[in-house]
């Protein structure tokens, strides 16, 4: 909980900069890239998080990585420097997620997950996305996952809200009704 609060605080600070510089979307992508890199590269993560290395060394390594490898914006580089200096790099994944949420809110965007029992034509995915955008009045970023345990049908998850149209849930309802009878 403390980590989430802290992450929101840093994310809000960065998005304010992004809003001033009118590049908050780009900064969000920078954070996403950096988070992916840290997640993929355990050695880099160990170096950036370990207090065994001096702050200066960690800053230098981060600068090399973020400028030469990822080619991030200056504001992102300064932000990562700040996190290393304040020993908050261990919260980087949460900060990136919080930033993404803030970015979505600013852009009037929502993220939804479509879970399906088996694959189905892409035009139907688009139709679902379109229907969601029509229902919410916001741009929808839809990610698709597959779960064979659903038997058939799909469900859409937006935050804590779930629109369920799976055979698994229908069977569960049938079972519940039969119990009551």
């Amino acid at each position: 909980m403390i980590s989430l609060t802290l992450a929101r605080k840093y994310a809000r600070a960065l998005i304010e900069i992004g809003l001033q510089e009118r590049n908050y979307e780009a900064l969000g992508k920078d954070l996403e890239k950096m988070a992916d890199l840290i997640k993929a590269n355990k050695e880099l993560k160990a170096v950036l998080l370990s207090p065994a290395y001096p702050v200066v060394t960690r800053k230098a390594i981060a600068k090399v990585v973020v400028t030469e490898v990822l080619g991030l914006h200056k504001s992102t580089i300064d932000f990562i420097d700040l996190l290393i200096e304040r020993k908050r790099m261990d919260h980087f994944p949460e900060i990136a997620r919080s930033y993404e949420s803030l970015c979505d809110a600013v852009s009037r965007r929502i993220r939804a997950t479509l879970v399906t029992a088996m694959g189905f034509p892409p035009e139907l995915v688009r139709a679902i996305k379109s229907q969601l955008e029509s229902s919410t009045g916001k741009e929808v970023i839809l990610s698709v996952e597959e779960d064979a345990s659903l038997i058939g049908g799909v469900l859409t998850r937006i935050g804590n809200v779930i629109y369920d149209g799976t055979l698994k849930t229908q069977l569960a309802k049938v079972k519940e009704n039969l119990y009551k009878e």
């Binding site: 399906t116 088996m118 694959g119 189905f120 139907l124 679902i128 049908g153 799909v154 629109y163 149209g165």
Partner: peptide, 8 residues
Amino acid sequence: QGRLVREY
């Protein structure tokens, strides 16, 4: 599955 999605 297609029919179910369309119904959905």
